[in-house]
Simulated assay, not measured.
Amino acid sequence: MEQQKFGDTNKFDELVKEYVNDIRKIVYTYVKNHHTMEDITQEVFLSAFNNFASFRGESSIKTWLVKIAINKSKDYLKSWHYRAIQITNWIKEESGNSNTEKTIIDNDRDKELARIIMELPIKYREVIILYYYEELDSIEISNILNLKINTVKTRLIRGRDLVKRRFELNG
């Protein structure tokens, strides 16, 4: 799939289906708003479709899409529109139908961890999300964020420490 050009929309549709959820997660970690996330996700794929000719193949398509998503998200965060609006939506996960005590405790712990990660400064949050949730390695993260690899590693260490301290503080 990655070596093919988007000669027809069916190939592009396959690409969207394969990566849309990953891109939504990344965008949401920046904008923390579901409606904005959907808008930016659409912009990411529209940009990818329009600019596929500029894709040099030096990375995977997923890495390229993640970079577009991060750039579009950061552009939004710099915009006047974002600065004029206070974001009030937080991560809301659907709880399962199970009512066992363990499931409830696990869900609460997961929600608390997600809340703590979302409250991290963006420079730590983005590397934590890309490393643990998107399963990208330090080199890919370095390329996506235009950072030195040692900076990525340092931010991962500091981000983990912040999460650990805040998680322990909250019980």
Rank of each mutant, 00 (worst) to 15 (best):
P121K: 11
E43I: 05
Q42P: 04
E135Y: 05
K5P: 09
I104C: 04
E101F: 09
Y82N: 14
N99A: 11
R83G: 14
I105H: 15
K74L: 13
R56M: 09
K164F: 13
V20M: 09
E18I: 10
Y82K: 06
K164A: 11
R165M: 04
D13W: 11
F12K: 07
K67A: 03
S73A: 06
R24W: 08
W64L: 02
S60P: 04
R115N: 12
F12T: 06
Y131R: 14
L145C: 05
I85Y: 13
K32C: 08
N170Y: 12
N89R: 05
I122F: 07
N107E: 15
L169Q: 15
A48H: 00
G7E: 04
T9M: 13
E140Q: 02
T9K: 10
V31R: 01
K32R: 12
K102Y: 09
T151A: 15
E38L: 04
E112V: 13
N170F: 07
E38T: 01
K25E: 08
L169Y: 14
L147E: 03
A84T: 11
I104T: 10
D75C: 02
R24F: 09
K17H: 03
K164D: 10
L156V: 02
I141P: 01
I85N: 14
L145E: 05
Q3L: 11
S60E: 01
T63P: 01
V16M: 08
S59N: 03
I116P: 02
S60N: 09
Q42K: 12
Y19N: 03
P121M: 12
I61F: 03
I139S: 08
N107R: 13
V66W: 11
S79E: 07
E58N: 15
D161W: 12
F12C: 09
Y30F: 07
T63I: 13
T154N: 11
L77Q: 08
D13G: 08
N150Y: 07
N99D: 14
E134Q: 13
Q3R: 14
E168R: 01
I117R: 08
L156Y: 04
E94Y: 11
S73E: 04
R83Y: 06
K153E: 15
E119P: 00
R165E: 08
G159T: 07
N146T: 11
K111Q: 14
K62I: 05
L136A: 06
S59V: 07
N51V: 05
G7W: 00
E140M: 00
Y133L: 15
D75N: 13
V66P: 12
E43T: 02
Y124G: 00
I85D: 05
